[in-house]
Design a binder for these strands. Structure first.
Lengths: 125, 125
DNA sequence: TTGTTATTGCAACCTTGTTGCTTTAATTAA
DNA sequence: TTAATTAAAGCAACAAGGTTGCAATAACAA
């Protein structure tokens, strides 16, 4: 059994992430769930889901935290290396399921990498 | 003539960035320059230097803003696409002067990309 | 040297996120 | 089914990073 109890709040958040590569910012989730749960609860559930390997988080260029569903991560470690895309016009942010090549750097032991691509999505071009 | 007047404060900050690929976080600059200028001044000078294409900024995984010198950027647009590295042990963060390949994404007009690599630097392995 | 304009300092503020503690809800044991 | 246990939620207060408005000062041009 995992650490995360399946409460009403957890279910509500999990439903949002289901079947989509769309990412949600912490702020947008707090706003969206304002009537259903406290912001502390939102952050704590996101933390727990990330610890369990169910979602992952990343930062955008403004320093905001975004969350999206994991495709193939295990509890405790996130192994699904993929880039994220953020549209500068509409702000929509999502996972891109393409392989990326991380350069080897002499004298550096690389453990992780995060690639954020920005531009215009198909809706906004 | 550029927008940025060469004041004592601007000179102090520019000296830090000279001849190094080392990046500085906003927070660390405020701390370091605490006796010489106000934090508002630090942020405003960083903004102006970035507008002029003299430095560039990026975010780390905690959402902190880092600043480093540009190699080949022009006023108003940053064109020097390169990854950044942050050591998880000592926190040192720097520009990596290697070419990176940005994947083409169908239906997306990619305008920028930011790759942050993390791991251990040579001092910390 | 004076007038003009950019820059600085300061205080107050905003946003995002966290912490401590009490209350409530979910699970387990009886 | 109920009681005991433990995780989760709510709330208020706080913290860090960064921004804003405005008055005071410094830089530059005439």
């Amino acid at each position: 059994m995992g650490i995360v109890r399946k409460t009403r709040s957890v279910d509500t958040i999990l439903e949002l992430f289901e079947d989509t590569d769309h990412a949600f910012s912490g702020v947008s989730l707090i706003e969206r769930l304002r009537d259903q749960m406290n912001k502390t609860t939102v952050y704590r559930i996101l933390d727990r889901l990330e610890d369990e390997g169910i979602i992952h988080s990343f930062q955008d260029q403004k320093g905001l935290t975004w969350y999206a569903k994991c495709q193939s991560c295990a509890s405790g470690q996130h192994t699904d290396l993929h880039p994220h895309f953020q549209c500068r016009s509409c702000g929509r942010t999502s996972c891109l399921h393409v392989k990326i090549t991380i350069p080897l750097i002499r004298n550096h032991q690389i453990e992780g990498a995060e690639l954020l691509m920005t531009g215009l999505c198909d809706q906004c071009t």
